[in-house]
Structures are given as structure tokens and as C-alpha cells.
């Protein structure tokens, strides 16, 4: 069973429906015990960083995520804010601590290098794979995925970068560290190749 973490603000049905479509068994939950029983975990992402972290902490979900992901090594997928919350720190509406599973910061797009591009970065943009990864199997390099975000993740270890995207500047589209995979784009909203990516996650043995 794949637990989709409900912290009161994600596009929960979107992600659950996509996983079901590609054959996964999901449970949308805010219960620590459900996460304990799950084989895999998805932290979806729509929302603001500070409130996201606060909601996770309120229900003790942050501690259970640490237990399940870091200690037990369960396969984990973070999406958008679900990726950003893995970082140590974010600068969205202030400065806030994240879960700290990845040594990274979350920063706003820098208008100085955008050449008039609009923020948020909304829409379909090509994702460039950094080497091959099992979750990208069957997906052509440089195909379009759907993004919607104003902030992006900057990891201190560039080796963790699994894919990049360009929006005035090259930024991290996906990271991979052991059993943790996370994307800035929304696979659940990226039609054919997004669904293929989620199917690969269901089959992922790490």
C-alpha cells in the first residue's frame, strides 16, 4: 500500500487517482499508524512551505516520516512542495526550517536572470535527465512535464540532481538520494509520461 500524506493542503485526489490509474493501491491519510503500515510513501505538494511544515508537525507526521524514510528506508516520492519540504531551510514568506532530509535550501526565482519571464513558473517545460534512473525508464529525455512553482530547491550536493529544467536559469527538476526521489514537476498532471513515471515508482525496488 502506498500512503499519500494528507496534511490538509495538497491536491490529494489528483495524485491518488493517478496512482490508481497505473495500478497502485493507495491510502490518503493523516494517521501515523497508516504510514507505519505503508510500503511506500508519497508527500504531495500544493501549498506554502511554512504551513506545510506546521501541519506535518502538528500531527506528528514529521517524526513518522523520518522513521519510515530515513530509518526504515521505505521508497519515498516527494512532489513539488513535497520535495521542497525535504530541505533544511526555505525562504518562502520568511525563513523556515524544513524536514532536513536533504541538505538543501529553497529559494525564489531570481528576477535578475529571468529576462522578463513571469513568476510563478507555470506550464509545460522540458525536463533534462542527469544520467539514467529507473523512475525515468520508458520516458524520453527532454520531454515536457507540468510545473507550477515560484521557489526551487538548491541542494549543496549536486550529485543528488536527477534532472534539471531551464527557466531563465537551470534549476533542479528532480533529486534522488537512496530511497528518496522527489520532483519539482507534477507527474500526476503530466499526462502520458507523468503516469509512466508514477508506474515506475509503484514498481521501484530500492
Amino acid at each position: 500500500m502506498i500512503a499519500i500524506i494528507d496534511y490538509g493542503m495538497g491536491n490529494l485526489r489528483s495524485i491518488a487517482k493517478a496512482i490508481e490509474y497505473v495500478g497502485g493501491h493507495v491510502l490518503v491519510t493523516d494517521k501515523v499508524n497508516d504510514i507505519k503500515k505503508a510500503d511506500k510513501i508519497i508527500l504531495p505538494g500544493i501549498g506554502a512551505f511554512r504551513d506545510g511544515i506546521a501541519e506535518l508537525k502538528k500531527n506528528g507526521l514529521d517524526l513518522e516520516l523520518k522513521e519510515s524514510i530515513i530509518e526504515k528506508g521505505k521508497p519515498f516520492l516527494g512532489i513539488c512542495l513535497g520535495m521542497q519540504m525535504l530541505a533544511k531551510r526555505s525562504y518562502e514568506f520568511g525563513e523556515f526550517d524544513g524536514l532536513g532530509f536533504i541538505d538543501a535550501e529553497v529559494v525564489h526565482f531570481n528576477y535578475d536572470v529571468l529576462n522578463g519571464l513571469k513568476v510563478p513558473h507555470v506550464g509545460w517545460n522540458d525536463v533534462i535527465f542527469n544520467g539514467s534512473h529507473i523512475l525515468f525508464r520508458g520516458i524520453p529525455d527532454s520531454c515536457d512535464f507540468y510545473f507550477v512553482h515560484s521557489y526551487h530547491l538548491v541542494p549543496s550536493n549536486k550529485m543528488l540532481v536527477a534532472a534539471t529544467c531551464n527557466y531563465g536559469v537551470d534549476f533542479v527538476a528532480a533529486i534522488h538520494k537512496d530511497n528518496i526521489f522527489a520532483t519539482q514537476f507534477h507527474p500526476e498532471k503530466s499526462q502520458k509520461y507523468g503516469l509512466k513515471f508514477l508506474e515506475n515508482f509503484i514498481n521501484w525496488q530500492c
Binding site: 500544493i46 506554502a48 511554512r50 510563478p120 515560484s150
Partner: peptide
């Protein structure tokens, strides 16, 4: 709403 759900929503 922006504080809660982020600008992009």
C-alpha cells in the same frame, strides 16, 4: 489563501 496554499495555487 496565498499564505496557506501558495501563490501558484
Amino acid at each position: 489563501a496565498v499564505q496557506k496554499f501558495g501563490s501558484s495555487t
